[in-house]
């Protein structure tokens, strides 16, 4: 029998602290924030693990990219969150990708015109936040414009974001993760390179 890595030490308080960071990240797109995250079984990044611990449970279907579909990651997620791991990306409320290129961008749910909230949140693990390709962001939560630098975005990401933004208010919301850092790109954010 293998021992399972621990989740949050004090779940109510740790989940609250992590949620406030997530809320702040979503409300201020492009801001890089750090989460106090327990070590998650690799290759799941600690911040991605903390997002699952904070938001996922038996009511949420999650999709994992092939790199994350290890017995250790699945056992850890199931034990600590009780979430359902689904094969079909279309059904996922949360999609986690350790390899950003493996995120099935065009299969994720964007919700409907009547219920745009019934859409996926895509959690991309990237190499670094705060370094790399500069993304120029505008939209709600951003006073004028802001720049987020990301190393390790998948090819086609900007074009996908443009299509995603055009479908507004339908759309997929993105959280980028590197180690214990996060930055969010909600669907309302317009993203260009520069």
């Amino acid at each position: 029998m293998t021992t399972l890595a621990p989740g949050f030490a004090d779940p109510p308080l740790a989940a609250q602290a992590a949620f406030r960071r997530l809320l702040d990240a979503m409300a201020r797109p492009g801001t890089v924030l750090s989460l106090e995250a327990p070590p998650a079984p690799p290759p799941l990044a600690p911040a991605a693990g903390a997002i699952a611990l904070t938001l996922c449970d038996a009511d949420t279907a999650i999709w994992l990219d092939p790199a994350l579909r290890t017995p250790e990651v699945i056992a850890w997620l199931r034990f600590h969150t009780g979430c359902r791991v689904v094969q079909a990306a279309e059904e996922a409320a949360f999609a986690f990708a350790a390899q950003a290129t493996a995120m099935p961008l065009d299969r994720l749910s964007t919700g409907s015109d009547e219920f745009p909230d019934r859409s996926a949140t895509a959690v991309f693990q990237v190499a670094r936040l705060g370094a790399g390709t500069p993304l120029r962001l505008t939209g709600p939560g951003i006073e004028t414009t802001t720049t987020l630098r990301v190393e390790g975005l998948p090819p086609g990401f900007i074009e996908w974001r443009r299509r995603n933004h055009t479908a507004y208010p339908r759309g997929v919301d993105v959280v980028l993760v590197a180690a214990t850092s996060i930055a969010a790109l909600p669907r309302s954010t317009a993203v260009t390179v520069g």
Partner: peptide, 22 residues
Amino acid sequence: EQTKRMIRRALLKAVAIPGYQV
């Protein structure tokens, strides 16, 4: 905690779609 998670998921979607009622 389960109720809080449900409300928190709704809040994040609400922030992502300003003015839309989740």
